[in-house]
Every structure is written in structure tokens, then in C-alpha cells.
Nucleic acid binder design. Structure first.
Lengths: 262, 262
DNA sequence: CGAATTGTTGATTCCCCTCAAACTGGGTGG
DNA sequence: CCACCCAGTTTGAGGGGAATCAACAATTCG
């Protein structure tokens, strides 16, 4: 058995499987409540008891729209909020000495960003929108306050952080011991799974990030990313058209990834 | 400015600088109390108000000795305890498909291991003693219980996790964008700082891990680690005798590391 | 003492980076 | 409308850094 699974790799917070929003659930207009959010099974409330989710509705937080290529926060900014993605995709990144950036993660709907700021009261990375996005900005102080009287909520927050640790474990493993094909296969399979969990096709999707961003994330150059895409195409594992990906042979792709990993 | 610093890189939990244990503090015999532990300024109590540390003495936990090359826990084991290192050095590692391991961290006195287990209730990595060691085994359930009524303690636990996230950020950056010399320089400087914080010499120390373990941690082969040590010796940055390291030119080593990182 | 482990060093290979050129689609302005 | 630019992508050629394979020294240990 092994603790390193594809699910864990690079998946920020998902804990239980996605369920489609049911029509029986009442739609709350004009007010943001976690208990009625269509992302409630992916986001913060995920894994909480129903009664605890009710209490989560006492959580006061705002919405914020961030346009493509705009930053939500930058490394060094004072840490006040954690952010749950409502729609769109973000990348998180660190600055290098030569001005380049190292991408440390991608976040999609229902995933929570910014927990690295708890450590020193300042954000340790920057978050940039890859398309037009919307987030819930949750005041961290308020969240901990609420969590003090609610062990269920406290545990969820702790688990979010621990999941982020496990996610980064997997990425370290990838960066430390996989070759270009294995890295890209792992990345694509992870994207596929996360999109599937959100109700999208697992076999056909549109990447929101550039070759350069994928390369930075996976520790390789954009040229190598492009070449590896071409190689997968020649092996009839994928059809690639710029950022549009169609997975032809999922098993083959999984084998390419499982060369090194359980 | 940059959030990625040498301090952050690979340093699991240290939050405030080390202070020598004072003679004025009474020595508690036969009982393990955080408030009288010689590691109290590095370990869990670090950064807590004095009154909170007093309350921390209600925390019930056991001690455990682990001999060299024995494991404290393995990935997949049920998560019950987090462990604070009292003495000695540990490595944490993940299993690869081919039976090899990927080292994900090294832990020394006062550092806390096992927080990756919170995510799924099972340890996501294994912890192995690199020499004869002793740890405090802290029941996580009990800790969260105690933390529920004490926001100070809760914040400390959260901060521990967030620090682990930031630490892994730095390692990802290292694995993703540094060459062999930069990686080893970063590793040595980090070791040096952590040993210094524990009252040991920053310029002369004994590594507790093998070339293979360093290589696995840094994403390179043991041969490359050995060669890079030799290269540093030829550049008169170090004197190396097996695992004994003497830093000759700290600034030079820092420059080798700062090639890429702020 | 022989066997096993760890570390050093050399020779060779190869994967990926670097540099470079060409192509695409989209946006802009003359 | 088309020329132009620009960012993103693809592809090629060549070189370099680290992996691989291999031999050997130094220690440790049964």
C-alpha cells in the first residue's frame, strides 16, 4: 500500500466526492450562505455534519471578482483572509531572484487558497487569476473565532492545511524523482480528475494555464512541455490543440505516470 | 522583497530564536512538563504567552525512545499522535513504486513531525530515526480538545501546519529550479542555521544522513551529492571528511545558493 | 577475517536545457 | 481590409549537466 495517490497529487482540498446540487435544496437569493452554495460539497463545508454547516452560515465573508491576469494577493501582503474559489482558476507562485516565477499550485472552484499565510502573518506566495474569477474572502480571524466553539469546524480548517501539506508532498516527489513524461502525465491525470469532480468531462478539457506555467509548476521548460505533449500525441495517448486536450488512452496515460509511483 | 528565505527553507517549525535554558528555571524531576522543557523555546510552546504555556502543562503525553534506523511511524499507519523530537534526528519519507524512498524532510530537536496525518487520519509519510532518538508523543485528539478552550494553543498548532506548508514551498522551489550546487549549498546552509539555533557550531558539524538520503531529499543521485561536496572543497568553501563538514567560506556558500533565490 | 555498507571517482550516455527559427491566432491601427 | 505586432506554441539543432554504470577505497560489523 502507498499513501501517495493520484488523488492526493496537487489536489488542494477536495475531501469527499462531488455531488450534483439537488433541485430540492432551496436556492437562497442575493445572500451568500455556505449551506446553500453549489460548491458546498467541495469547499469549506466539505465533510462537515449538516448541523455544523448550518452554524457555518454565521460566517461573515465577502465576494470578490478578480479579472484574468490580476493578482488576488502577493507574497509579503499582510495575511487577513483565506480565499475559496467560486469560479475560474488561479495559480499560486513564488518569486525567484532573477524575476522569474515558480508556480506552486493551481486552484479551481471549491479549493481554498492562502493557508500558507498563517505561518508568519504574511502571504508566502502570490495568487493570480488565469481567467475571470470570483472568490469568497473569509476573514481568518473570524474563522478561528467561530472554530473555537465548534470542534467540527476547527477540524475542517486543520484538515485543509494538512491536505495542502500532503499535496505538496506529492509535488516534491514528482519534482524529485520523475522524468518529463511522468510529470506531464501526472499533471494531466490530476487535472482530469479534478475537472471530473466538478461535473466536467474527464477526457476532454481546456487548460487554463500556458505551457510556461505548466513547465514552471512541473520543473521543466516550456519547450519540453510542448515536446512532451507532441510525444503523447504520437503515442496516441492524447489529441492536443493548443490548450485543448482530448484524452484518447487514459490507461496508457496512467501507465506513463505509474512508471515510478504506486 | 521576497517571502522565500533561507530560514524558511526546510526548517519545519522554528518560529522564534533559540534561548538557552536558564538556571533560574526550576528543574522538574521525573515529570515531563512543557514549561520546564529545555526545548520550550523551539518546540510546541514556542511563541506562546507564559500563561498559555502553563496551561500546556495539562497536556498529557508520553515519551518514546526510537533507536537508529527504527521507524517511529509508517505511511498508512493510523494517525493518533504528533511527535516532537526531544533528541536525535529523523527523516520523513515516501515510498516509490520501485521500492525506493523519497526523503521529504529531516527533523531535529524541537521540531514537530506527523502533521500530514491530520488530512486523512493516516500518516502520509514514514518517520525513521537516523540515530538514537527520543520523542514526545502528543495525542492529537487531546491536543485539539485542549486547543478548543485556548485560542493561543490553537493558533500555535495552526501555525505549525502553515510553517510546514511554507517549508515545502521552499523545497519545491529548490527542486524545480536549482542546479546541484545550489541545492547542496541551500541544504548545508539550512543545516548550519538549524544547528546554530540549537546551540551547536554553525561552521562545523556532523551530518546524520547518508549521501543517498541527502540526494533523495534534494532530487539528485548520491554520486552527484558526493561530486558536489568535492567541488565545494576544491572551491575552498568547505572541508569535508565523510559526514563531518567544516564551512570555510560561509559567504561563498551563500553566494552559491543565492544564484537563483532572493 | 570476509562481507556489507558507505563514500569517492572515472567514463559514458542521454535527457533536458538553451538558443533559434517559424507558425498561429488575436488584437490594433493605418 | 490588410499589414503589423505580439504572445503563445511548435519544432529543430546542439551542448551540457546530471544519471548511469562501474571500479575502488574506507569503515563497520558479524
Amino acid at each position: 500500500m502507498s499513501a501517495v495517490t493520484l488523488e492526493a497529487f496537487a489536489t488542494p482540498i477536495c475531501i469527499v466526492p462531488w455531488r450534483q446540487a439537488t433541485d430540492s435544496a432551496p436556492i437562497m437569493p442575493l445572500k451568500t450562505l455556505c449551506s446553500s452554495c453549489h460548491l458546498r460539497d467541495l469547499c469549506l463545508p466539505c465533510g462537515m455534519a449538516g448541523s455544523d454547516v448550518q452554524r457555518l452560515d454565521n460566517l461573515k465573508f465577502g465576494r470578490r471578482k478578480v479579472k484574468a491576469s490580476q493578482t488576488l494577493y502577493r507574497e509579503g501582503d499582510r495575511f487577513q483572509f483565506i480565499y475559496a474559489v467560486r469560479s475560474g482558476t488561479f495559480k499560486s507562485s513564488l518569486l525567484l531572484a532573477d524575476g522569474r516565477e515558480q508556480v506552486s499550485g493551481f486552484y479551481m472552484a471549491g479549493e481554498v487558497m492562502g493557508l500558507d499565510g498563517v505561518a508568519h502573518g504574511a502571504h508566502a506566495s502570490s495568487a493570480t487569476a488565469l481567467e475571470d474569477t470570483e472568490v469568497c474572502a473569509i476573514p481568518y480571524a473570524h474563522l478561528t473565532e467561530l472554530a473555537a466553539g465548534n470542534s467540527g469546524l476547527q477540524h475542517v480548517v486543520s484538515r485543509l492545511m494538512s491536505c495542502e501539506i500532503v499535496r505538496e508532498h506529492s509535488l516534491m516527489l514528482l519534482l524529485g524523482s520523475m522524468n518529463a513524461e511522468e510529470r506531464l502525465a501526472a499533471f494531466l491525470l490530476n487535472q482530469s480528475q479534478r475537472l471530473k469532480a466538478r461535473g466536467y468531462s474527464a477526457s476532454e478539457f481546456h487548460l487554463r494555464m500556458s505551457r510556461a506555467e505548466i513547465g514552471s509548476y512541473l520543473g521543466m521548460t516550456l519547450e519540453t512541455v510542448s515536446r512532451t505533449f507532441s510525444a503523447f500525441q504520437q503515442q496516441h495517448l492524447l489529441e492536443v490543440d493548443k490548450r485543448y486536450i482530448r484524452v484518447i488512452d487514459l490507461d496508457g496515460l496512467t501507465r506513463a505516470f505509474e512508471m515510478r509511483l504506486h
